[in-house]
Design a protein around this nucleic acid. Structure first.
Length: 480
RNA sequence: CGGGGCGUAGCGCAGUUUGGUAGCGCGCUUCGUUCGGGUCGAAGAGGUCAUGGGUUCAAAUCCCGUCGCCCCGACCA
């Protein structure tokens, strides 16, 4: 059972985060270092994320498939940058069935290589393109330092892999899938992400370029919440994926890949959570409404439960995800706190007074205390609840957007930039520096380029770092 | 891999300085009570004190070793 209060965010954000993860019963520690046991409540949240994304993938023409967990070591080595990027964090199986393997098998850190090998078989003609595949899977990266959901040795994700006839189509796909992620993040997870392009230093190993959605957590650190890569012909050439075009000429395909992981759960926790616990956006909340019945004796209990039954059926019929907290041994007050910890968007109280007056009490998680509580008639309750859920969803997004906007600052000099970063904000400024300049800034301030936002001012400006003329602005921040 | 901390009941901890056969709070079980913001009471169950060795009449406690975990940094979805 979830329980007592949590360390305030202002006191120790990192401690707050860890406590929320365990107290809201999203996850448990695992016996294996860096891994995570995802508990039912956390997994239901993941399932909501999955279904929100999967629906969008299908709507844009993608199909799911599944590729092996084990990848021949030699596959990883075919794309130079790719192997260089991933080799330090690979888990490799060298013994199986009691015998040393002829070729070690890598536990997939990502599946570009094994999927490209399959694509090579599947693609013969331009008629086979575009090939639009997605996979829901677990992957393993032996990270030095792990944090629940944000960075774990094993994590769950989806990885999309597509092949196209032209560079333009591949680029359109890369952008489209970033839009899909942003649409999901903003409209379902209520996280106001910023779309942009990664700097060369931060792009995916093996990609021509990488697009990202970046979110601001409540400690003002940035979290890369989803990425979409244009792989150009890098993998096509490494794996020899060619098709015959309309003129009977061999051409290499253009590929993309894009992924979003259980890290999104961490993003939701850190974007919306407060000192009372989790706050879940209704669209992804495992339970949208928790019903707490209130009574002091069997007579009241009978009447209250009868009303609760009737209401439950009505809400369920309208597709509202409800949970009836029937626990007999706990007081209503305890339950209120318990469900606030777990972030349920709306709490419904049904007591003797409600039975008498034909009302129920509705309390919204996004507005604390009495302010957020109201008594409403039982008539048309489902409609009222749906409306309230929408309000909560919109308000969480609004609060997060306001917070983010208040903490992004335009800078015109390095001194100013340092000051902004020191205060925990994000710095936005004209940039014409090199990768080495970026490295120096990271060294001196801890901040990195999160992205070059798609939304750019027109014209040009002066780079805050080099003083040279610059054509684009960059967003700098400390990141997870 | 560097720095710091910690391994004692399911969880959080005290006990270690000064050796004497293990305790507190929460949770759990049963009964009663209460129930519109973390009810209250009674009775219970539950521990190879991380691990291996050593010292001692006697070790959670002292000595030597090992393992694990957490936090902070460098690497990363």
């Amino acid at each position: 059972m979830a329980s007592q209060a949590v360390t305030p965010q202002s006191e120790d954000f990192s401690k707050w985060y860890n406590e929320i993860v365990y107290k809201a019963e999203l996850a448990d520690q695992s016996p294996v270092r860096g891994c995570l046991i995802i508990k039912p409540y956390g997994y239901e949240l993941w399932e909501a994320i999955k279904s929100g994304l999967d629906r969008r993938f299908k709507a844009t023409g993608h199909q799911n498939a599944y590729f092996p967990l084990f990848i021949p070591e030699s596959f990883l080595k075919r794309e130079a940058e790719h192997v260089e990027g991933f080799s330090p964090e690979l888990a490799v199986v060298t013994i199986a069935g009691g015998k040393e393997l002829e070729e070690p098998l890598v536990v997939r850190p990502t599946s570009e290589t094994i999927i490209m090998d399959a694509f090579k078989q599947w693609i013969q003609s331009y008629r086979d393109l575009p090939l639009l595949i997605n996979q829901w899977a677990n992957v393993v990266r032996w990270e030095l330092r792990t944090r629940p959901f944000l960075r774990t040795t094993e994590f769950l994700w989806q990885e999309g892999h597509t092949a196209h006839a032209t560079a333009e189509e591949a680029e359109a796909e890369t952008k489209q899938m970033l839009d899909v992620y942003a649409d999901f993040a903003i409209n379902d997870a209520a996280i106001p992400v910023i779309k942009g392009k990664k700097s060369d230093r931060e792009k995916f190993a093996g990609a021509v370029h990488t697009y990202t959605i970046e979110a601001m957590m409540r400690d003002k650190k940035a979290l890369q919440s989803g990425t979409s890569h244009n792989l150009g012909q890098n993998f096509a050439k490494a794996f020899g994926i060619q098709y015959v075009d309309e003129n009977n000429q061999y051409q290499y395909v253009w590929t993309t890949s894009w992924g979003l992981s259980t890290r999104m759960i961490g993003a939701i926790v850190m974007t919306h959570g407060d000192d009372k616990g989790l706050r879940l956006p209704p669209k992804v909340a495992p339970y949208q409404v928790v019903i707490v019945p209130i009574y002091k004796n069997d007579t009241e209990r009978g009447a209250v439960m009868e009303t609760v039954d009737k209401i439950s059926k009505e809400l369920a019929a309208h597709g509202i995800r409800i949970y009836l907290d029937k626990r007999e041994n706990l007081s209503p007050g305890f339950k209120f706190n318990d469900w606030e910890m777990r972030g349920v968007p709306v709490r419904m109280e049904v007591g003797p007074k409600d039975v008498e007056k034909g009302t129920v009490a509705l309390a919204r998680r996004d507005i604390p205390g009495k302010e957020g509580k109201q008594f409403v008639p039982q008539e048309n309750l489902a409609a009222r609840v749906l409306e309230l859920l929408n309000e909560v969803q919109a308000n969480l997004l609004q609060q997060a957007a306001d917070f983010r906007d208040a903490n992004i600052h335009d800078v015109t000099s390095y001194d100013q930039m340092k000051q902004v970063i020191e205060q925990g904000g994000w710095a936005r400024g004209w940039w014409s520096g090199t990768g080495d300049d970026e490295a120096q800034i990271k060294d001196e301030t801890g901040a990195t380029i999160r992205c070059f936002p798609f939304e750019q001012p027109s014209g040009a400006g002066q780079c805050f770092f080099t003083g040279q003329s610059a054509e684009r602005i960059a967003l700098f921040a400390k990141a997870y």
